[in-house]
Amino acid sequence: MSLLDYFKTSKTSSASLAKERLQILVAHERVSNNQPMYLPQLQKELLDVIQKYVHVDKDAISVKFEQDGNQETLELNIMLPDDTTKRF
């Protein structure tokens, strides 16, 4: 390594920053682009049904779609409130 390289590597290059940002962004966008179109509607309707019985916030429910090879999984997660008096 020459003296010049020493100075060059002393700070993070903009290219490696670009790569890092892209990797995060692309991974995120691939997930949301591969999701079925019905997902937001499904989430909304499920929330409506659950709210008939339990007082939950809008963000207390998460619907995740994952694809691993040929296997597709739909994961439904509902956070019930800690305060039991809020339940019917």
């Binding site: 060059k8 290059s13 903009s14 490696s16 670009a18 790569k19 892209l22």
Partner: peptide, 17 residues
Amino acid sequence: RVKLGEMLSVEDVQEIL
């Protein structure tokens, strides 16, 4: 520019895409 760390390299782009 790749060598200076100013531009994404072929490997970087291939790795992402």
